[in-house]
Design a protein around this nucleic acid. Sequence first.
DNA 1: ATAGTTGTAATATATCATATTACAACTAAG
DNA 2: CTTAGTTGTAATATGATATATTACAACTAT
Lengths: 148, 148
Amino acid sequence: MQIGSRFTIGVHIITAIDYFKDMDRVNSEFLAGSIGVNPVIVRTVISSLREAGIVQSRRGSSGAELARPLDGITLYDVYKAVHSVDEAEGLFHFHEQPNPDCPVGRNIHKALNPRLANAQEALEDELRCTTLAEIVEETRQAIQNELH
Amino acid sequence: MQIGSRFTIGVHIITAIDYFKDMDRVNSEFLAGSIGVNPVIVRTVISSLREAGIVQSRRGSSGAELARPLDGITLYDVYKAVHSVDEAEGLFHFHEQPNPDCPVGRNIHKALNPRLANAQEALEDELRCTTLAEIVEETRQAIQNELH
DNA sequence: ATAGTTGTAATATATCATATTACAACTAAG
DNA sequence: CTTAGTTGTAATATGATATATTACAACTAT
């Protein structure tokens, strides 16, 4: 069980938009080529990022742009934007039909749910610690280091 | 995208084994009734817990028992035992074919992977903070509180 | 006008979790 | 030692969901 790749695709998109902004026409086909997925997937993820106010894009006009500075975007923002995880359901899937006629069945969630929420929050807090500015900067440095 | 219910099923199993150990014959059918899933799923999860040294069970002999004290079992132990998440793959699914001919495509994982690992570790560390002794105790208290 | 792109729906495919069926291996009780 | 009942596990089916693909109207820029 894994968190879907739309999250890392979203990070890749933002990084590529910034990196290539002065060099190429960064449209969905170009991005799809860099990421290695279908252009429609790219457009779908971009739509999510647009709805979250992270990037700008519109019909007919080729290419996407960032809607706010890179240091104002965290990994958590991207994670939430692409809704890799359903907000209401939470990260952990609790078995859905514990028996209400069983004392354990109807009470265990009271003990377990707060712990699952804490674990999910720990993950999200960690994602909030990194901005896309850091990701882009480190990617640029990695590219520089290739030259040696 | 969610972490599968085998994890919470595992916690439910351990809690029920302890709670009912002096009252009922806690076999896979009984547990399946309490949890609300198929008995074979219960037996599969118990197999995982047995391989992790958390419970004891064997062919023919009805019922499972705990293999070690409840305060020596953490939520993380259960989480790992049922392999809700593949060890090698990690919690986050990185898109699999970033373009090696693109500088961003072949370098972004260097910047992103450590952050994803940190987030996963934060989640797991939080799961290590809770023992099954706490879960069982709180479940017992919740059952007690029902009487008022 | 025209060529090219986006947004989005519809559909297909792939993957994986859970459900179900089936049964040999085994235990315990009589 | 026979029998009823359970476990471990394989095989298969079902269901849910993520990603891929096709298609095209809406739109932009030239």
